[in-house]
Design a protein around this nucleic acid. Sequence first.
RNA 1: CUGCCCGUAGCUCAGCUGGAUAGAGCAACGGACUUCUAAUCCGUAGGUCGGGCGUUCGAAUCGCUUCGGGCAGGCCA
Length: 565
Amino acid sequence: MMTNIVETIKKQIDNVVRSAVSKAVKKEELPSFEIEEVTVETPKEKTHGDFSTNIAMQTAKFAKKAPRQIAETVVNNMEFSNTYVEKVEIAGPGFINFYLNNNWLYDSLKEVQKKRKEYGRINIGSGRKVMVEFVSANPTGPLHMGNARGGALGDCIASVLEKAGYDVTREFYVNDAGNQIGKFGISLEARYLQLLKGENAVEFPEDGYHGDDIIDHMKNYVKEHGDKLVDVGSSERQKALVDYALPKNIERIKKGLQEYGVNFDVWFSEQSLYDSGELKETLDYLKEKGYTKEDKGALWFKSSLFGAEKDEVILRNNGVPTYFLADIAYHRSKFLKRKFDWVINLLGADHHGHVSRMKCAVEALGVNPDKLDVVLFQLVRLYRNGEIARMSKRTGKAISLTDLLEEVGRDAARFFFNTKASGNHLDFDLDLAVKKSNENPVFYVQYAHARICSMLRLLESEGVSVPEINSVDVHLLDKEEEIELLRKLSQYPEEIKLAAQTLEPSRLTRYVLDVAAAFHSFYNACRVKGEREELMKARLLLVDSTKVVIANVLELLSINAPEKM
RNA sequence: CUGCCCGUAGCUCAGCUGGAUAGAGCAACGGACUUCUAAUCCGUAGGUCGGGCGUUCGAAUCGCUUCGGGCAGGCCA
């Protein structure tokens, strides 16, 4: 089955080269040597052919011959039957350049038409179970820009892996236990008492949550339940208030993410690790294995046994588990209880210190730490009027995901957060994101799609619809702009593969921009309507295929592909 | 002090498991609408790849070093 034409061609070239080499060796034109890998790449310069290999330079040392001489020998022994290769040239220091006939492009056009919505799906994952855990925002407050970037990035990584043939689970780790929930309770309690007994009745804790949302929660609580908690004990009061506010926060987070187009399969509760006994089991396991030590009244995980520089506290001297212990139990659940083959965690770059100790912990659990990948993404800076924007125009408070969606919309947000590699800082220009012009890449791509839809509508109204591929002479597509566009379309499965391998969906936003650009160029150079029928049909097919590819990429990114603009 | 990330055109960024003349978008400048959406296209200009040393046939890419920016280094998460 041909799912990825580019890969097929690379395999063909690989075969051609290997058999040519072994033939030459047999004829003793070359000394015998091992080829580890035939690297096949697409040259930057079009005049250097469609694909090229540097095998002659790589093997020059073993063969003890000049690269160009090796290349010549190899080329003389090549066989091209049943391949797309049309001719071969030796160039530069010893590159072997392959020039293909256009059939590979026409074949890939057939693929697009045959697969439609499924075009781009590949199977490098072979159904392996992978979990992508992302956002996992602290449920004590609203979603911030870091969560917004993490959400767009994580969701797209998950989508890319699904397209690449993995069995993907999107998971949100709800930190509903531990220290920050304690602080949440103290903060709620303080606001509650301030509301009922006056501002000065209690002092608000310095390290509490100062946001207005805490006050709003308590105003609502008082409205609904009055002062019934004023006279009960503090811990009971805090618990009641947390039980009231926390589910509301989690609901709000769910709703916000839904509007953002991010839907999780699993909302995993940290508290459940305590309730189910898994946390204790994990602790017992670590102790039993001798991976722990006691020091200064606390219990430590000896991460130094696994190459780390220092050990980590897992039980404080007051007996309370740390977040890290819960996280170890959590990863035990991911790997050992739920049997994921691969786990990907998204983390803001400010948490990078967590990565190496987590890997140590995974190793301590008896799991190959390579099965854990942590994608660190750098922080976001918002710009408005050329200046750094921190506050929402409407609320005057820190800009939340909800504010962002209100200001620029989901399409722009999802697109912009995926324009840069995760390891780079991201400047988000709020003015640009809403601009309806060619400066704004989102509109550039959406416009291409809408333009195509408009063309198809017009032709449809004249009784011309997209033809069956078998009734079309695709060889008529041979103008430069047509070939360029075909090339771009044929690249999609390969793009999915690369995005999956590098966990970098930003290459897909670049790719879809390229497709849109190739289309716009084609549009200005070639007409569809009004051409003679055979040519019109062929071009119509190309245009329709472009629409399919753009729509597929946008769907993967959770961005609308509008039919009209 | 130590560790991680980043430094490429005026701006925002690709390229980084070493390859041929370092790419794109925006901004700038000059062109293209009697015909399928000009929210578009075509062209021009723009660079000591932060600096230095090394590795080799070959370095933006790898190593060392240095400078500049960001972030970490809690019995916080």
